[in-house]
């Protein structure tokens, strides 16, 4: 039986789709059969980030409405044989999703995959609610910034009360904090919330800290999940996060200000 993970945040633009793509790819790299599902109906971009936008024939809504089977809609990743993507519809909107329809699709996916990653849309309305309803674990993506923290807090409250596990009185969803766009220099200057500050406000387990990195923009433009750029700090940080998700103890890197040598400063190496 698969593990259903939801990547959610409340706030928009914090790195949910980037993280879904990276974590899904990371799990597949480690040999687990993984599918990433885009729940952002109408504003889909998981297919762009994964680089499969030219191969989308059928989407999530087609499967729910019975116009296509799951096998027809699933897109196999070109780079990894364990990785599949279920794109969202671009022409419809969130009202096309129904609880029963989504439930059926997730059940079918759970039988064929080890990990089902639900890439949630921003907000707390129907799309986000359906994305997190069936989850076993949740990765709450947060920027170290006050409005993102507040929205993540709200989302945590919803995970604890409006998910299927909560409504049936089962064990609660396991929550992980993924802090993205972290900039240690600004934290030291006092401009940005630090890891401890965010942990104190949200009080959930820290899964990983992804540093602010130019590699992320490059990766999304190329349609390559950033975790495959293993030279970049963001890619490596995502890799560490996936290891921690699988239970390994890994030290947090990229938390401290990088000490640049004289030559580096001279030649401006700002990665």
């Amino acid at each position: 039986m698969a593990k259903i993970l939801v990547v959610t945040s409340g706030k928009g633009g914090v790195g949910k789709t980037t993280s879904s793509a990276a974590i899904g790819t990371g799990l597949a790299l480690r040999g687990h059969k993984t599918v990433i599902v885009d729940f952002d109906v109408g504003l889909r971009n998981l297919d762009l980030i994964m680089g499969c936008e030219r191969r989308v024939v059928y989407d999530f809504v087609n499967v729910i409405q019975g116009d296509a089977t799951l096998t027809q809609a699933l897109i196999k990743d070109k780079r990894l044989e364990n990785l599949y993507v279920l794109a969202a519809s671009q022409t419809r909107d969130k009202d096309a999703l129904t609880l029963e329809g989504v439930g059926k699709v997730i059940d079918e996916l759970a039988q064929n995959f080890e990990y089902v990653i639900c890439d949630s849309p921003a907000g707390i309305e129907k799309g986000a609610h359906l994305a997190m309803y069936f989850a076993d674990e949740a990765i709450v993506v947060t920027n170290p910034e006050v409005s993102s923290v507040r929205d993540s807090d709200r989302m945590l409250g919803l995970l604890a009360s409006k998910s299927r596990r909560a409504e049936n009185g089962e064990e609660p969803i396991k929550e992980h904090l993924l802090l993205t766009r972290y900039n240690p220099e600004r934290v030291v200057k006092g401009e940005m919330l630090g890891v401890e500050d965010v942990e104190e406000i949200l009080s959930i387990r820290l899964l990983g800290v992804i540093p602010e990195s130019q590699a992320v923009l490059k990766a999304s433009n190329q349609g390559v999940p950033v975790i495959l750029d293993d030279q970049s700090d963001a890619g490596q940080a995502y890799s560490d996060a996936v290891d921690r998700l699988l239970g390994k103890e890994v030290n947090h890197r990229f938390l401290d200000v990088k000490k640049q040598g004289f030559l580096q400063r001279l030649f401006g190496g700002r990665e």
Binding site: R150, D153, R154, L156, G157, L158, A160, S161, S203
Partner: peptide
């Protein structure tokens, strides 16, 4: 005993 989140 659990944290009370914003909105609750």
């Amino acid at each position: 005993t659990t944290p009370i989140r914003g909105g609750q």
